[in-house]
Write a protein that binds this DNA or RNA. Structure first.
Lengths: 345, 345
DNA sequence: TGATAGATTTGGAACGTTCCACAGCGCGTA
DNA sequence: TACGCGCTGTGGAACGTTCCAAATCTATCA
C-alpha cells in the first residue's frame, strides 16, 4: 500500500496517472502548448492542482540544457546603488520571460568567486556581475561557456561585455565643479579595488593636472564603504594646509567622510566641501543633500540584460562595451571655500 | 570527428574518459570520498582541471533529491535592514556547508509569490522569507514540502517558523520614550501591510492608552518606504494642533518623514521629534542621527538558518517562534517639546 | 464506405549525476 | 595452498523532465 505522496512533491507522472493520460501530454499542457484537446487539458490542470504539482526546474534544465534564468552576483547588498541595478535587471528579465537568481559576496573577493560558482553550477543561462571586485580567472573562463556582463566595471578580457558609466568623465566633472567654486586643495579618497574606482582616480588626477592644480592633488586609499570613506577623510583632514574639498569614491564612502568631517568639528560645506559618486537615494536625502555624480542605475541594469540577450538570442559574439554618461548633481555639500584674512582659502 | 567540447561544458563522463576510469570513480573523487587510491585521484583531478569540469548542480540535485541550497526571498532590497539579515543568513549557511540563492519582490506582493515560486522550482532545501508582505496560500502550501521560516513577520500557519523581534514592545518603548520627554501629541505613521507593522501599530495604540494619551493617538496609513513615511508625515503635519512627536513604522519611512518635516519648514527635534524602527545604518549616520528601535539583524538572519536546520537535520516538526528583544536607541531626533507661552506644548 | 490528411497523443531515449550491489585484487592466516 | 576479508573500482538503475518519431483519432471528401 503506497501512502499518498506528500503534497507538492508530485511528479509529472503522478499527474499523468491521475488525469489518465501520458506524461508527455502533461508536459505539453504544463508548457501551454496548443494542439491539446480542451477535455484533456482541463483534466490535466485539475489533476495538477489537486496534487499541488510544481515542475522541477532541475529536471527541466537538465534536458532542455537551459534554465531561462539569469544569475546576478552583487558584490555588496549594503550599497543602495545595487538595489536599483538589480531592480532594472529584474524588470527587463521578467519582460523577456526570464527569472533571476541573486547571490552576493559581502564585499569580499573570496566570496565573490564562491557566489559565481554557485550560479554556474545551477547552469544559469547568463551571468551579470554587479560591482565586481576583481576580474578573476574563474570569470574569464566562465565567459567561454555563457554570456557574462559586468556592471560598473569595464571588462578587460575580450569575451566579457560590460555596462558602465564613464567614471573618468564623472570624476572630471566632480573636480571641475569644485574648482569652479574656487577650490584648489581638492583631495580624493579613492575606492581601492572597487568597480570603476581606478577610472575615477585617474579622472581626478587628470582633471587636477589640466586645471593646473597638480601640486594640490592628494589621493588617499579608501574603499566603497562607509569605513573606507571615514578613514580616508580622517587622513586628509590631518594635512596642513587642510584640503577645502573632498571627492569621495562613491556616496557610501562620502557618508563616511561626512561623519569624519563632523567628528573633527568641521562643517560641510562651510569648512569642507564634499562630493560623492552614484547619486544613490542616500545622497538625495534632504538631511544629507550630497553633491554627487549621477549614474543611471535602473537603465544600467536593464541594459545589462539586453546585452546578455544579444548574445543569448541574437548570436552576437563580439564584445559590447556600453558606456553611459554620468551627470553632476549639485546639492548642498559644495560651496565656495571660505577665505582667510588674506583672501586665500 | 568530434570537435573538442567547449571548455567547461564537460560532463563527468568526459572526465572519466580522459582519466581512464569509470564515471563512478570520478563522482567519488569530486565528492572527496576517501578509499580512492592516490594515483587515480590525481588522474581524475588532472583531467577535471584540464577540461574545466564543473559539477552540474541540477543533475546532482535531481538524484540526491536535495540541493544543499537555501532560498531567500527578500521583499525589498532597498531597505538596508535586509542587507544585514542576508549577511547573517549567508554567514550561518556557509558555516554549515549550504549555499544561498536570493530572489526579491521589489516590495510588490505580486512579485513575491513569483520569487518564491522560482526558488521552489529549483528545489531549495529550505526557504527564508524576509520581510514578507503577505502570508499567501502558496507559502502555507510550500511549508508542507520544505521548512519555511519567516523573518520579521510572525507566522500564522502552524507549519511556519518565524524569527521576529517583539514589535509590540519596541513600539511601546518608542512611545514611552517620547512621553517621558513630555510629548503628548504623539502620532504614528504605520507600515501598512509590512512585516511587523501591525504589531507596531498595536504597540503604539496600547502604549498611548496606558499612558492615558488615547485622545491624542492618531495613526495615518504609510508603508515601509520613504514615500510612505513622507506622505503619512505630510498628513500628520496638516493637523491642528500639530503633533509634537512622530513615530514612523521603520527607519526608511522615518527618513521620508524627515524630508516631509523639513519641507514644511519645521525642524527636528525642535519642532517635531521623530522616532524610527530597525536601527539601520541609515539611522546611525551622524547627519541623520535618528532615535530608533534596534533589532539584532545579523542574529536574526543567523537564527533563521539554525531554525531551518533544526527541521532539516534534527527532525523538529513543532513550530518555532523566536522573538528577540528590541531596544531603544536614543539619538538626536528626539527632545522635549518646545512650549508655547502658556507652558503647553 | 474507404481513404486521407490533419490533429492529438504516446512511448522511450536522453540529460548528468548519485547510489548500490557486486566484482577484482592483494594479503594475512590456517 | 586456499580462503576470506578489506579495499578499490565499476556498471547500470534512477531522479523528473523534454523531445522526437511514431501511433492513434477524427473528420472530410470522393
Amino acid at each position: 500500500m503506497v501512502s499518498k505522496r506528500a503534497r507538492g512533491k508530485a511528479t509529472i507522472t503522478d499527474v499523468a496517472l491521475r488525469a489518465g493520460v501520458s506524461k508527455s501530454l502533461v508536459s505539453l499542457v504544463m508548457r501551454g502548448e496548443r494542439h491539446v484537446s480542451a477535455k484533456r487539458r482541463e483534466a490535466v490542470q485539475a489533476a495538477a492542482a489537486a496534487l499541488g504539482y510544481r515542475p522541477n526546474a532541475m529536471a527541466r534544465g537538465l534536458v532542455e540544457r537551459r534554465t531561462r534564468t539569469l544569475g546576478v552576483m552583487v558584490s555588496d547588498l549594503h550599497n543602495p546603488f545595487f538595489a536599483d541595478v538589480v531592480e532594472g535587471i529584474q524588470d527587463q528579465a521578467r519582460r523577456s520571460g526570464y527569472r533571476v537568481l541573486i547571490d552576493t559576496a559581502n564585499n569580499l573577493a573570496s566570496q565573490q568567486d564562491e557566489a559565481i560558482e554557485t550560479l554556474l553550477q545551477f547552469r544559469v543561462d547568463g551571468l551579470i556581475l554587479a560591482g565586481l571586485l576583481a576580474e578573476s580567472r574563474l570569470i574569464v573562463e566562465a565567459s567561454q561557456e555563457l554570456p557574462v556582463v559586468l556592471v560598473g566595471r569595464s571588462a578587460r578580457a575580450p569575451s566579457l561585455d560590460s555596462v558602465t558609466n564613464d567614471d573618468w568623465a564623472g570624476a572630471v566633472a566632480a573636480v571641475r565643479h569644485c574648482a569652479s567654486l574656487g577650490h584648489r586643495r581638492i583631495s580624493h579618497v579613492d575606492g581601492g579595488q572597487g568597480a570603476g574606482a581606478d577610472a575615477r582616480r585617474r579622472g581626478y588626477e587628470d582633471a587636477m593636472r589640466v586645471l593646473r592644480l597638480r601640486k594640490h592633488a592628494v589621493v588617499v586609499p579608501g574603499s566603497y564603504s562607509e569605513e573606507g570613506g571615514h578613514s580616508g577623510a580622517l587622513l586628509l583632514l590631518e594635512r596642513r594646509p587642510r584640503p577645502t574639498a573632498l571627492f569621495a569614491a562613491n556616496d557610501v564612502a562620502a557618508i563616511g567622510a561626512l561623519n569624519a568631517i563632523e567628528e573633527r568639528g568641521l562643517r560641510v560645506p562651510d569648512d569642507v566641501s564634499l562630493v560623492g559618486y552614484d547619486n544613490t537615494s542616500l545622497a538625495a536625502l534632504r538631511h544629507i543633500s550630497l553633491t554627487t555624480v549621477h549614474q543611471p542605475r535602473l537603465e544600467m541594469g536593464q541594459l545589462a540584460v539586453s546585452t546578455l540577450f544579444e548574445r543569448l538570442e541574437e548570436g552576437r559574439t563580439r564584445p559590447r562595451r556600453a558606456v553611459l554618461s554620468p551627470s553632476l548633481v549639485v546639492r548642498g555639500t559644495t560651496a565656495p571655500p571660505s577665505l582667510d584674512g588674506k583672501g586665500n582659502p
